Deep mutational scan, measured.
Amino acid sequence: MFYPNSPQTSPQLTQIPYGQQYAMMQRQIQQPYHPFATTEPQARLYPYHYQGPIQQEQGGFITQQSTAASPQYVQMRVTPVDQSIMSGYPNQTANGSSSSSFNYNIHPQQQQQQQQQQQQLRHHAMPVGSVPLQDDRYRKQLIVNYLAPDVTSTDLHELFSRFGELDGARIIYDKQTNMSKGYGFVYFCHAEDAKEAVERMSGYEFHGKWLKVGYSTNPLNIVPSNSSPYVHAGSRGAAG
């Protein structure tokens, strides 16, 4: 039997160049792979992502010199942007860049009308829970959420009447099932009393439920100042 490094198959040491006398086997001759043993700084910083320098080929596509990437890492192929796409944008300079302001050559009167329309939209648009300043009635009506099913309009009136005089209180019921929808409205005579009720009743436990109280901004629920107070009856038909 002959071994790869046996004296019968191995040459004389004098015939082997210096430095390879003890590297006779194939696994010894093959050098191990060192990912950080390279002179390129990109490979030292990113050993798993770097795959060699990027070269520009004919046709405008950018390719990489090395083989496919590892399945664990996804390499994105980048193509140059066609400058003709950006030619339609206004205020574009000769080098292809555009300024931040756009001039669509709008007539001054049209621009003024658009600004007025935007101001009107901001004036009428009102986020949930906010209180408008032009109508004091919005500051007097509250919406009470997360009410228990057994709470009546009379219970709601008695709960909030300790903060001040009320114009009314009612629970909203479903017309088909005649069941409470879980929320109601309270109408105060003074805005200061309503503000105190919002601050003190939010998070209050009532009939096993934690109440959420806020201003009601729905104009359909506003009680006119010259109208008669609501009837605080315990029956659902009268309260709904």
Rank of each mutant, 00 (worst) to 15 (best):
P17N: 08
I54S: 12
G240Y: 12
Y22A: 12
E57T: 10
A197P: 01
Q72F: 12
M24K: 15
N105W: 13
R44G: 05
G240Q: 04
N221I: 13
L133Q: 06
N91M: 08
H232P: 06
G52L: 05
H190V: 07
Y204A: 13
P229G: 07
V186T: 02
E192I: 09
P224F: 09
Q141R: 01
Y48R: 15
Q114H: 11
M25E: 15
S100A: 11
L211H: 01
P32D: 10
V128A: 13
M86Q: 13
A68N: 05
G19K: 15
A194R: 01
V198G: 03
Y104N: 11
V186W: 01
G129S: 08
P7M: 07
Y89F: 06
L147E: 01
V81P: 12
G234Q: 09
M76F: 10
D135A: 04
K209Y: 03
V186D: 00
G214Y: 02
S84N: 11
N103A: 06
T9V: 11
R139A: 05
A191P: 14
R122K: 09
T177E: 02
S130D: 08
A197E: 01
A191C: 13
S70F: 05
Q75S: 10
F102C: 11
S101W: 04
T39I: 05
L211Q: 00
S6Y: 06
F206T: 01
N95G: 12
H232G: 07
S66M: 06
Q26N: 05
R170S: 01
M76A: 14
N226E: 04
M24L: 07
P11R: 14
Y73E: 12
Q176P: 08
P224I: 05
G234V: 08
H157Q: 09
F160H: 00
F206S: 01
G203Y: 10
T9H: 09
P53G: 12
M25N: 12
I143T: 01
T38Q: 11
T14Y: 07
C189S: 12
L220Y: 02
P229L: 10
T152I: 13
G203F: 04
R137T: 03
D82R: 15
D82S: 12
P7N: 07
P71K: 14
N91K: 15
Y230T: 03
L211M: 12
V231W: 14
Y22G: 14
Q20C: 12
T154K: 03
S202K: 03
T67S: 07
R44M: 03
E192V: 08
V81F: 06
Q30P: 13
I172L: 03
N145K: 01
E192K: 13
N178M: 13
G52K: 15
Q26G: 15
A23N: 14
R27H: 03
E192D: 08
G237N: 09
A233Q: 06
Q134E: 07
N218A: 02
K209R: 07
Q8E: 05
E158Q: 13
R170V: 01
N145R: 00
D135C: 07
Q72M: 02
K175P: 03
L211I: 09
S97K: 13
A239M: 07
A68K: 15
S227R: 06
A69K: 15
Y146A: 01
Y187T: 01
E192F: 13
C189I: 03
P80G: 15
A69G: 06
Q42W: 03
S100P: 11
L121W: 08
Y73K: 15
W210T: 02
A94L: 09
D155C: 14
W210H: 03
S66F: 06
T93V: 10
D136S: 08
Q26M: 03
S161C: 11
P32F: 03
S99M: 13
T177C: 06
A191Q: 07
F188R: 00
A37W: 03
Q110W: 10
Y138M: 02
V81H: 10
L121M: 11
H232Q: 06
Q51G: 11
I222Q: 02
T93F: 07
D150Q: 14
R122L: 04
M76T: 15
S98H: 15
Y104G: 05
F61D: 12
Q134S: 06
P71I: 02
M201T: 03
G168D: 02
G52C: 11
Q65Y: 05
S161Q: 12
Q116L: 13
T9W: 03
Q112A: 10
Q20A: 08
P127G: 11
Q141C: 00
P127Y: 13
P127S: 08
P229A: 10
E199H: 14
G60P: 10
Q118M: 06
V186N: 01
V131W: 14
Y48L: 10
I143M: 03
Y3E: 11
Q65L: 03
G182H: 02
I54C: 09
S180A: 10
I171R: 00
G234C: 14
S84Y: 04
V144H: 00
P4L: 03
P4Q: 11
Q15W: 02
A169G: 02
E165Y: 15
P219W: 00
M126P: 08
A68D: 06
S227C: 13
L147D: 01
G96V: 09
Q120T: 05
P71V: 03
Q111A: 05
N221P: 07
T9N: 10
Y46C: 08
Q113G: 07
L156P: 01
P41C: 05
K175M: 06
N103P: 11
V186I: 12
Y3D: 06
V198N: 07
D167P: 01
H123N: 04
A191K: 13
Q30L: 04
